[in-house]
Design a protein around this nucleic acid. Structure first.
Length: 303
DNA sequence: ACGCTTACCTGACGGC
DNA sequence: TGCCGTCAGGTAAGCG
């Protein structure tokens, strides 16, 4: 389940293997993989052919590769945007290797070297070519607002970005009438946090997932933010979290953070702070893990 | 307008 | 052995 650290690991892999290379052709093997590319698979492939991929960028769980025309020095106005969804993988390898069972899109390069493949069992992920627009969330680059893909324009900065505005995040929480975990999963408030790291951040902050956001103090909000930054930074340092074969880097290798998780997936196992068995609640049709002692349920809960 | 629910999708797994 | 229900969950459309 790729969240920010896992996407960043993939972004770094792409940075090494695709930067400066020119796409020769793209093959869409499953139209659902490019469903958000409104003009269709043929247009998607046409917009990639002949264009050079610049250094990949990321915000939250989205990543993109700015596309430059071979014939032009002009700054890129479009990008190849990728979201891995639940099970998406971007893989780099020998073009002659066997086709993966869930291969959805393949991009061949003009240099004839390693190709780029989008493999996605559950097809929640997608690729598209889209316009770049000025960032409304404060990202800067070279003295001007940074450019982000149009579909990313409504996604808030992630907590590992310089542009992330902690005070604005706190004010937004106080305005909301919802629970803290729901807010952490809302990518328009803070991006990059998914179910796993939301539970980990809340465990670190010692807050229950149903805590009403409008009652959070500035100090509590800061604890959540610090927890998210710490846990995602630590996960990134060891290559991300892998629960199954779904999340891998561009070479197909898994990360090692699962063994370091304090809450997620640890039902009935002892809390690493106090020894109380970790509980599992069903919330938003998914699991929430927390410590009954360190993270007591608030008297007024919001779901 | 906002908060919340639902649909989308495939494979693993447990129970019978 | 095989069938069926459940679970995994990010996103955005759609509902009230």
């Amino acid at each position: 389940m790729p969240e920010l650290p896992e996407v960043e690991v993939v972004r770094r892999g792409l940075e090494r293997w695709t930067t400066g290379r020119t796409a020769a052709s793209a093959e869409v093997l499953h139209p659902r993989a490019v469903r958000r590319h409104a003009a269709g698979p043929a247009d998607f492939a046409g917009r990639l052919a002949g264009r050079t991929m610049l250094a990949p960028r990321r915000r939250g769980k989205y990543m993109w590769l700015p596309l430059q025309d071979a014939s032009s020095e002009a700054a890129p106005g479009e990008a190849l945007l990728a979201h891995l969804g639940m099970s998406g993988q971007l893989l780099i390898g020998d073009p002659g290797r066997e086709r993966e069972k869930h291969l959805r899109v393949r991009v061949a390069f003009a240099d004839g070297g390693r190709d780029l493949r989008f493999v996605d069992q559950r097809t929640f992920g997608h690729l598209m070519v889209c316009d770049l627009v000025p960032d409304a969330f404060g990202g800067r680059e070279g003295g001007a607002p940074a450019l982000v893909p149009e579909p990313v324009a409504h996604i808030a900065a992630d907590p590992l970005e310089d542009a992330f505005d902690a005070e604005a995040f706190f004010r937004a929480l106080r305005r909301r009438r919802t629970g803290i975990k729901r807010a952490l999963l809302d990518q328009s408030l803070i991006s990059g946090v998914g179910n796993i790291y939301a539970d980990e951040a809340l465990w670190r902050a010692r807050l229950h997932w149903a805590r009403p956001t409008e009652t959070l103090t500035r100090a509590e909000a800061a604890r959540v933010l610090e927890g998210a930054r710490e846990v995602m930074g630590a996960a990134l340092a060891v290559g991300g979290t892998s629960f199954d074969s779904h999340y891998v880097d561009v070479n197909g290798d898994s990360g090692y953070f699962e063994r370091s998780l304090d809450a997620y997936g640890r039902r009935d196992e002892p809390c690493r702070r106090c020894g109380t068995p970790i509980r599992r609640d069903v919330f938003m049709n998914r699991s929430s893990y927390s410590c009954p002692t360190c993270q007591p349920r608030p008297r007024r809960a919001r779901y």
